[in-house]
Write a protein that binds this DNA or RNA. Structure first.
Length: 479
RNA sequence: GGCCCCAUCGACUAGCGGUCAGGUCACCGCUCUUUCACAGCGGCGGCAGGGGUUCGAGUCCCCUUGGGGUCACCA
């Protein structure tokens, strides 16, 4: 059975890169009738952020990428948090120590740092560990360890020959052993490094396909060495392209908003984010741009991933979100999603129907849920702002305002047919262009020049509010 | 710097030896129109360069160039 996993480390905001990896791993596992596991890699206690784990797990639920096994879901391979598996790693590290595949090293971090600087200063192209303790007599090693001296455990990498990574997307990738150094697999604090922990867990959890970001490709030889030291089989390796900043460097929070929570707060829909990520490095066989998780499930093909690192750009994401807002979601669904945003803004509305009508009227005009809130103020409050341009229009058409108010107040109702007929007639009688009347009116009752059609506007706002606003506008532009 | 990966419009991509190199976003027009949008139509714009292989290269190979990643007791 196919088993995939993502192994996020809880160090901060849920990252779009994590969502991206989760998408591919989830889809592939589901499609193959396999399992998708989430394992938390919290072996770096200095960077650990307790809130992060919960938010990452929540993000996956929000996106609809539910794992089969995870810290919250549990499963037969638990625990799914590495800090709870310490004895496992320690036992495995000991195994390698016993077999001679690994050894203790006693340098302090400061010493290593100094050696690195030295090497760099000397202009050495090779910058790995200098293997000082590789052939240290084991009796002395034992003695120092027994005396309580701190140490790390390093894997003994072969000095000659090479290792070939069979990458699903790139084919064979060869690395010279001379390029490898003896990496730390167990830190002085007793925690494993990623290399050990991930390989041990992947093996124990039955992971068959390691689908991860390209940044891991160059450490794969090392992972293979660990696997071999234990006598375990390799999984299928599949290194996917890295999401990029607009300047093409690896996507980072310094240069881009990488927080899924942030996009969520802005009113990006999970479907749209997923859809967008699905177009990063991958495309539907028929090239359609808008597709669901279900569509992906039916058509996804790992080998169809292209290798150029895609720029994670907001323009298209926003366009896509707008597309979902106006074409994919039902009005009812959309309204439900907008409600929390409207509530957060403190907008009150008289009825569900009113809210939906406003949404429908504005639907083609906002691309994120938050944008709805920003563009709909005048539908919910009387203290809506008036833009400079609107104010200018208001002044231009100030002469019409008193008459307009009279006309509108005389109407029996504010149905579109009624107001349209009346206003058309008014415009005709004045012998001016429609805009000369409509624009000032629009400015008066919304404070904006970018609104839904006039007759929908009038109906939604209603006679009372319109007349009040007209009166206020009049006094506002009165000399 | 060593090693590794990558390379089609500004961005996301289709292409898997023979296509007028197609689509989407963005941008620019036009249509619709009381505004802004949406929508529709049209336009701008690309195979990084050089060698090969081949009757024929965006497609295969090599070199150059460019971009990226990695070289932590971080993942």
């Amino acid at each position: 059975m196919v088993v995939t996993r993502i192994a996020p480390s809880p160090t901060g905001d849920p990252h779009v890169g994590t969502a991206y990896q989760a998408l591919f791993n989830y889809i592939f596992a589901r499609q193959q009738g396999g399992k998708f596991i989430v394992r938390i890699e919290d072996t770096d206690r200095t960077r650990y952020n307790p809130d992060s784990e919960r938010r990452i797990l929540e993000m996956l639920e929000w996106l609809g990428l539910s794992p089969d096994e995870s810290p919250t879901k549990g499963g037969p391979n638990g625990p799914y948090v590495q800090s709870q598996r310490l004895p496992i790693y320690q036992a495995h590290a000991q195994r390698l120590l016993d077999s001679g595949a690994a050894y203790r090293a006693f340098e302090t971090p400061a010493e290593l740092e100094a050696a690195r600087k030295e090497a760099e200063k000397a202009g050495a192209s090779y910058r790995g560990y200098n293997r000082r303790y590789r052939d240290y007599p084991s009796a002395e090693s034992e003695a120092r360890a027994a005396a309580g001296e701190p140490f790390v455990i390093r894997l003994k990498a072969p000095l000659e020959g090479s290792v070939v990574v069979q990458d699903l997307l790139r084919g064979p990738v060869e690395f010279d052993h001379s390029q490898l150094d003896d990496k730390v697999i167990l830190k002085a604090d007793g925690y494993p490094t990623y290399h050990l922990a991930a390989m041990v867990d992947d093996h124990l959890m039955g992971v068959t396909h390691v689908i991860r970001a390209e940044e891991w490709l160059t450490s794969t030889p090392f992972h293979i060495l660990i696997l071999r030291a234990f006598g375990w089989d390799e999984p299928v390796w599949c290194h996917t392209p890295l999401l990029r900043n607009p300047d093409r460097s690896k996507l980072s929070k310094r240069k881009m908003d990488t927080s899924v929570d942030s996009y969520r707060a802005q009113g990006i829909l999970p479907e749209a984010l997923l859809n967008y990520l699905g177009t990063m490095g991958w495309s539907m066989p028929d090239e359609r741009e808008i597709f669901s998780l279900q569509d992906m499930l039916e058509h996804f093909d790992l080998s169809r991933i292209s290798l150029g690192g895609p720029v994670f750009g907001l323009d298209k994401l926003r366009w896509m979100n707008g597309k979902y807002i106006r074409e994919v979601l039902s009005l009812d669904d959309l309204a439900e999603r907008i409600k929390p945003f409207v509530e957060k803004a403190g907008y009150a509305y008289p009825s569900e129907t009113y809210l939906k009508q406003v949404i429908e009227a504005l639907r083609a005009r906002f691309e994120t849920l938050q944008e709805f809130v920003e563009k709909s103020v005048y539908f919910f409050r009387e203290d809506y702002p008036t833009s400079e341009k609107a104010l200018a229009k208001l002044k231009e058409g100030a002469v019409f305002l008193p008459e307009l108010r009279g006309l509108l107040s005389s109407l029996p109702d504010f149905l579109p047919e009624t107001t349209e007929a009346a206003l058309k007639q008014f415009v005709e009688a004045k012998g001016v262009k429609a805009g000369a009347v409509m624009q000032p009116l629009r400015a008066a009752i919304t404070g904006s020049l970018e609104t839904p059609g006039m007759f929908d506007l009038l109906m939604l706002l209603g006679k009372e509010r319109v007349l009040e606003r007209l009166e206020r506008a009049q006094s506002q532009v009165a000399p």
